[in-house]
């Protein structure tokens, strides 16, 4: 067992946790934040992406104990109250979603991509999102959404 002290979406949590609990399971089961999804269990699909200290992380391949002391943001924590994050708004408006299962991870990866890179070309976005799989859309509207959000975020 390990002592975990972690800030998730601005709120501190202190828990006694098993050493082998994955961050995604801690988020979904202990904190009941089910917007972070598990798609492949093996760090391939990106449905479980959250931000740990501002960096996109596939939470299915990180132990919760490794996030001790960290600040974690999940899909539930990026909007400002009623006001959606520009990336959330863009995915909504540009139809960058169908079944919605990949959407939270896609949004989280896209936010970091845009925050860390200025003047993203379409090709940069395509390559930057390679670690997030979508089986429904064919990606066109996802790329469009990221472009739309980028222009707002970098204004």
């Amino acid at each position: 067992m390990a002592q975990l002290s972690i800030i998730v979406n601005g709120q501190r949590h202190v828990n006694e946790i098993a050493d082998n609990i994955l961050l995604v399971d801690y988020i979904r089961e202990t904190l009941a934040l089910t917007g972070t999804h598990i798609g492949c269990d093996t760090s391939q699909c990106g449905a479980c992406v959250v931000h740990v200290n501002g960096i996109s992380v596939k939470s299915c391949t990180m132990l919760a104990a490794q996030a001790d002391g960290a600040e974690v943001t999940t899909i539930e924590g990026i909007s400002d109250g009623e006001n959606l994050h520009p990336m959330q708004e863009a995915f909504h408006e540009q139809h960058g979603l169908q079944c919605g299962f990949c959407t939270p991870g896609m949004v989280m990866s896209a936010i970091e991509l845009v925050e860390k890179n200025k003047d993203l070309s379409e090709q940069d976005i395509r390559e930057g999102l390679e670690g997030n799989i979508c089986r429904c859309t064919g990606y066109h509207n996802i790329v469009k959404a990221v472009q739309t959000a980028a222009s707002k975020m970098q204004r």
């Binding site: 089910t34 899909i75 949004v107």
Partner: peptide, 8 residues
Amino acid sequence: AALYVTGT
């Protein structure tokens, strides 16, 4: 869509 993008 609104639920998907907010994880709800």
